[in-house]
Amino acid sequence: MTLETAVTGAPGEPELPAEQLERFLYEMAFIRRFEEKAGEMYTRGKIRGFLHLYTGQEACAVGAIHALEERDKVIAHYRDHGHAIAKGVDPKRVMAELYGRADGTSGGRGGSMHIYDTSKGMMGGYAIVTAHLPVAVGLGLASSMKGEGFVTLCIFGDGSVGEGEFHEALNLSVLWKVPVIFFCENNLYGMGVSFAESLSTEIPKLAAAYNMPAVSIDGMDVLEVHRETKKAVEHCRSGKGPYFIEAMTYRYRGHSMSDPELYRLKDEIEEYRRRDAIESLRLYMQERGLVDEQRWRQIEERVERDVEECVAFAEASPQPGIETLFEHVTKESGDD
């Protein structure tokens, strides 16, 4: 397999400091391994329900979320493990949530599609397609009305654009000039319907029609994702309203673990793997003398260890007690 690097930085000096590049490399590799492991644990019956893996799309979460500050918020669709991890949610607790255990991010109530950790600004995990786009607008409204200045990065798939709420949210966001980045991870498919067959136009044109800046970028190039999201963050932070990014990417696995994948050919997956985000960044760093074979092996070993630690943590975490079933249906009054 010949690799065509997706990372297109200028020759010579690296675009970002070496430590940051290595952090990106480690985190993308970690998310990939985490997801592969989750898939494995699903086949072994440790994880149940719907599991949507993020392999192939790592550059989106890592590039975009690291353009944010800690106080900024992320709100995402159900393919959410990578986003949570990149936002700083403890991956051990994410794995425990997939296991449905007491130490999971929602104590085992939410599962894979519903990962929340408000202490890290991870607002979820939404499994009803497009439901979180208007919610992002509201978060943006809270940020501007309270003068808090945090930016909300709202991540969703290409499948969202056919829903009415997509259009409602975009329109509201411009009318109210909210600091929200709409970040569409276009992985070319909804479940099995290709995005080309479900949209009569191009995604950035939709956003442009609502009068907000809109760009289409290479979602396999973590540096480009980072660069472009930084611009979007600056735009939002300076009070200019929402911003739209379409990141072209690809999911390597089926839509969920139960996808028979009748709608695409293996060749297509191989084609996209040639521009793999992790390999591309590694090549970029290697060419600049920032990572050699040995260093890469060390990173891989660390990734393996860290993922194993997540699994061990989840395995050791207790089941939530049945007596907790009725907790948190409504909030007890007087708490606020």
């Binding site: 449905g100 939410g110 089941q319 907790t324 079933l325 249906v329």
Partner: peptide, 16 residues
């Protein structure tokens, strides 16, 4: 069903 949104955890779902 019990008067709760459905939890993910197997035992909790079974109880619900």
């Amino acid at each position: 069903s019990k008067d709760v949104p459905m939890p993910y955890n197997r035992d909790l779902e079974f109880a619900a």
